[in-house]
Design a binder for these strands. Structure first.
Lengths: 190, 190
DNA sequence: CGGTCTCTTGACGGAGTTCAAAGCTAGTGG
DNA sequence: CCACTAGCTTTGAACTCCGTCAAGAGACCG
């Protein structure tokens, strides 16, 4: 269960055997069935959650159209957390919902602070995760601002080739900021 | 010169007098004239730079259209750094260019690492900056994906009311992902 | 005054949306 | 094993938002 997360961390920093054991004691396994919520708009994000198996979508509801706007998908090796809400105890503006049966490891805010206190090395790992996420968000902003629907779709399937098999097209359309109908046409043209 | 940066940090964490003095010794004042580059596409981002006075634009050149895509503006109290390049020593995909005469405080990668080593408290400050930036980037993605040009412009002037006075409209248009011509029409309608 | 840079305005074209309907696929129950 | 439903994708036609190109109007600066 932990192998995956430990390996992910070890790829960035080194932990000894005893540190690994210590680390494990902070986390709890958590399961969601398809269509269950991990977090609802307006609630506090109480846990930092790492996806071991499965997939969630992070989205908010457009107040005018009533439609979902997908912020990201969280599959294996992703963190599925509203950082702003988790860190600052502010009500979340996002929803996190399982689109497959999903297994996660999670930790509460208080435990998380204690964990970093116990194993300060981990600061570096979490900083790297944040930095990497920022770099990817910056690229996404540029893409949303200047690519056509076809270019955005092309870039998406290059970056996440396996997502097509597991995520319905209308969610990918929302992630790319186009309608499902138009994405279907883009795909049909090739 | 340092008052501003120190105050910014003190708003998040506490530093003693001696820590403040220590802190100051790591930084150098750096000046750019309007239209000078802080960083060019392809180069390494060698410094973490804090804007004391002035304004820069971060952008990349669209390979197809040859036009600028604005990633962000960095005015007073902003960090003007390509984090990915600075941290990972990868060639930057962005340009950073002064759009006003600009005064900054800056620190090299090596000094920065040493600074965090000397004053570990600062880890928290920089983590807060990263988290805050992520939250704002997430909101921007949602906005770019689902707002019309008029809504994006409206949101921009609410969020950054002072920018209209100092940044040319065609750069704001690029930041919002619309053409200068269309932004002009949006403004004319009201 | 004569450039250069920015903003505006007009006409046209194209990318993407909307609404509606029909086709597909997979699960479910009889 | 088939019929039925529900969710997803496709397709068509009309429409809208926004981009492109081209020209002109101000503003600033040497």
């Amino acid at each position: 269960m932990f192998d995956d997360l430990i390996a992910h961390i070890q790829s960035e920093i080194h932990l000894t055997e005893t540190e690994v054991e210590k680390f494990k004691s902070f986390w709890k396994v958590f399961e969601l069935s398809k269509d269950d919520y991990l977090l609802r708009n307006g609630d506090l994000c109480m846990f930092d959650s790492y996806v071991v198996k499965g997939c969630l979508k992070a989205y908010c509801i457009n107040t005018k159209t009533g439609k979902e706007d997908i912020l990201f998908f969280a599959t294996e090796k992703w963190w599925a957390t509203d950082l702003d809400s988790f860190v600052n105890k502010t009500p979340s503006i996002y929803n996190l919902k399982a689109i497959e049966n999903t297994t996660m490891l999670r930790i509460s805010r208080e435990s998380f602070i204690e964990l970093l206190d116990t194993l300060p090395k981990l600061e570096k790992y979490f900083r790297i995760i944040l930095e990497r996420y920022i770099a990817s968000m910056q690229r996404r902003v540029i893409i949303l601002n200047s690519y056509t629907a076809e270019e955005k779709y092309q870039h998406f399937i290059e970056q996440y080739p396996s997502m097509l098999q597991r995520v319905p097209q209308y969610l990918i359309a929302s992630y790319l900021g186009v309608t499902p109908e138009f994405l279907s046409r883009v795909r049909g043209k090739k």
